[in-house]
């Protein structure tokens, strides 16, 4: 009896809540590091980046307008969906040569990290907002407020855990994002898009692109409709380029080079705050 022929998966991108191929129709080979073919990924173009930024900007108003409670529930829902698809991600991580135990640990940590940030959505302004005792007859308060569209450049290592550790703190408070997945290891990020799609995350809140960095980073980092950049790539040159291009429109830049993505230090509200503005409101007090 002949073995059943497996149905292989076509990896696409995740933009505006849909799964389009690159507008350029190009793909590139993803291998397991020993040159064994795993899949083809979309080789996104500058146009794909611009489309993703547009989708992200369009989604911002609606996501930002959700209540903090609702965003927390949506983030929790992502964790629930991921829990149910654990095996899929363990297998996908193993394709790139990771052992079962490490892969399982990565998926577990990623799920727990989502829950961690889900809990911050309705607490961040309580912990970091202030009522300011101004020396005049005014009521004055400051509250953190989402900064807008965030461009994220993911690292190569731990392609599920790192991607979730970067996306969750950004979207928790109402930002939307465009993520460039790892060039060599993008498949778990693309599959994570399917989880997002099934988790009540509105289309466009998270957009995931794959491809060659030298074809996408320039457009992402210089795009004027992006308000902030989060770089976890270890490449120093990319970091400098991002810094330089950010100055074109005064983007906030966070260079986030993690040694150990499993470490609990990635679970803190200060990364959330990096993508929030402080808004201060005054009003006179009087009869």
């Amino acid at each position: 009896m002949a073995d059943r022929i497996e149905v292989l998966k076509t990896y696409k991108t995740y933009v505006g809540g849909k799964f389009p191929r690159s507008e350029s129709d190009r793909t590139y080979r993803i291998t397991d590091g020993k040159d064994n073919h795993i899949a083809n990924a979309c080789r996104c173009s500058r146009k794909d980046v611009r489309d993703a930024v547009l989708a992200s900007r369009s989604a911002f108003g609606g996501w930002y307008a959700r209540t903090a409670y609702n965003r927390g529930q949506v983030l929790y829902r992502i964790a629930e969906m991921l829990e149910g698809r654990k095996d899929q991600f363990v297998n996908e991580l193993k394709l790139s040569g990771v052992k079962q135990k490490v892969a399982l640990n990565e998926v577990h940590t990623a799920i727990d990290r989502l829950i961690y940030f889900a809990g911050w959505t309705d607490k961040i302004s309580q912990v970091f907002g202030t009522v300011n005792p101004v020396a005049s007859a005014h009521f004055n308060f400051s509250s953190p407020d989402a900064t807008g569209v965030v461009g994220i450049i993911a690292p190569d290592e731990h392609p599920l855990l790192s991607v979730i550790s970067l996306i969750a703190p950004v979207i928790a408070t109402g930002n939307t994002c465009v993520l460039l997945a790892s060039e060599t290891n993008p498949l778990p990020a693309v599959s994570f898009g399917e989880v997002l799609h099934a988790s009540d995350v509105p289309g466009g809140v998270v957009n995931i692109l794959t491809g060659y960095r030298n074809e996408t980073v320039e457009t992402l980092t210089s795009h004027k409709d992006i308000n902030a950049l989060l770089l976890a790539s270890r490449d120093i040159e990319t970091g400098k380029l991002a810094d330089e291009n950010a100055s074109l429109s005064v983007k906030r830049v966070v260079q986030y080079r993690a040694e150990d993505w499993f470490s609990g230090e990635h679970e803190n509200p200060y990364l959330v705050l990096e993508f929030m503005e402080t808004k201060t409101t005054w009003h006179p007090v009087g009869a």
């Binding site: 300011n132 005049s136 005014h138 004055n140 400051s142 808004k279 005054w282 006179p284």
Partner: peptide, 14 residues
């Protein structure tokens, strides 16, 4: 955001 006022400053106010 200055509501019903404008150009007010204070050291305690970000």
């Amino acid at each position: 955001i200055w509501s019903n006022t404008y150009n007010k400053f204070d050291p305690t106010s970000p």
